[in-house]
Design a protein around this nucleic acid. Structure first.
Lengths: 216, 216
DNA sequence: AGTGGTTACTGACCGTTGGTTAGATTCTAT
DNA sequence: ATAGAATCTAACCAACGGTCAGTAACCACT
């Protein structure tokens, strides 16, 4: 493979990703067709199959970068100074919701990835890894905000509970035709309220020491 | 139209609904084709279009009955005696989750209904009405469990928060291949925990009288 | 300059989908 | 028996995701 060839291929590949990103930012998975993407990218829809193993794989690859960015930003939020642990959890939640809602079409992709092949290069696997890391991050934020050390399974149950809420917020708002800013302006305070209540409830539950729950 | 003709038509219509119900109970919207339904119902897929205005309308009509049943059962749960208000809220949550998860394929239909036509007979409208009634029911249950009267907008914000959680639980579990019983056996306690924490958090928030949140 | 091989790309095609329509079949009422 | 409405079906449509044989572009070597 020569330089010119590689450059050409890279350019086409990039054009496909850019086109797909633009289309998926306003339309859902099913509403965007491979031919739409190809037209915007300026190539035949067949060409896409040279670079990607189909529509889902394309979407997975497309989702990976925003998710990597998300992980990085969430980590930064979490280790940022001059914030109390529960403020940090709140900031984490806000950041998570902002990221998820800014990528509404991609969000279902993150959270319904089902490992298909064991192939290491399968982008679905990286998505799953990234998702698990974000989950673990939330667990650590929650742990820190609670201020007491918890057994792994109990922390898991609380983190799951917290994530159910975040997930529900995104899912409820995903179908909205509003822009991210409109959405946050209208419901942002409610999101904050919901997260705050959830955290307070978990903290109360922990401190009451009720342990009748042992899931998994 | 004579009686015999009507009876025949009714039978076909029923067969279609039954077949669709059977198929949607194990497969998702996209995985079930009109031809699958027709085959199981013992007719041509074209026949379905005589009775229903397409796949989505069929699904809406199909979803209406379970949702009516759900509303009825949730009402019964709510007005059942010998339960404290917060036990009642917990029972409501459990019942809601059980119903939603037993109809996993239909659940997204309930919650993404977008009013299409203003036609009174549009089944999507009834779905929306039913959904709103269930939401109102949850609001009343929450109000009762909190034990204090709240301004409408504050109760709305809390109810929304609570529903975000329920919604998130269903959405997170909807993709699971497990049966309802397996799912509840594995995660039921976590669901209960999540609902309990959310309620405790809301109650704490109410009693602290923090009112900096005024959404909508 | 021309040749061969690799890479990048495309048009035509496949099976399947949701949906439509002309017309055959079935049934009832007379 | 037959007209006429109700019911059903075979054949069709455009669009989908995806495949494949073949073409065009490029580079290295003689």
């Amino acid at each position: 493979m020569t330089n010119k060839q590689r450059a050409r291929a890279e350019k086409t590949r990039k054009a496909i990703l850019t086109a797909a990103e633009a289309l998926f930012s306003t339309r859902s998975f099913d509403e965007v067709t491979m031919r739409d993407i190809a037209e915007l990218a300026g190539c035949s829809h067949t060409t896409i199959y040279i670079y990607f193993d189909g529509k889902e794989a394309l979407l997975n690859e497309l989702a990976a970068e925003p998710l990597r960015t998300a992980l990085r930003r969430l980590e930064r939020t979490l280790y940022r100074g001059n914030l109390s642990p529960d403020e940090r959890l709140a900031a984490f939640s806000r950041e998570f919701l902002r990221l998820a809602l800014s990528q509404r079409a991609l969000y279902p992709v993150f959270f319904t990835v089902r490992a298909s092949r064991v192939d290491e290069k399968d982008p679905a696997l990286e998505l799953q890894r990234l998702r698990n890391e974000i989950f673990a991050l939330a667990g650590r934020a929650l742990q820190a905000a609670l201020g007491v050390h918890l057994a792994e399974d109990r922390l898991l149950a609380y983190t799951r509970s917290y994530f159910y809420l975040l997930h529900g917020i995104v899912a409820s708002s995903a179908a909205s035709p509003e822009s991210l800013d409109e959405l946050l302006a209208r419901l942002g305070p409610t999101f904050d309220l919901a997260c705050l209540c959830m955290f307070r409830g978990i903290r109360a539950h922990v401190h009451e020491g009720r342990q009748e729950v042992s899931p998994q």
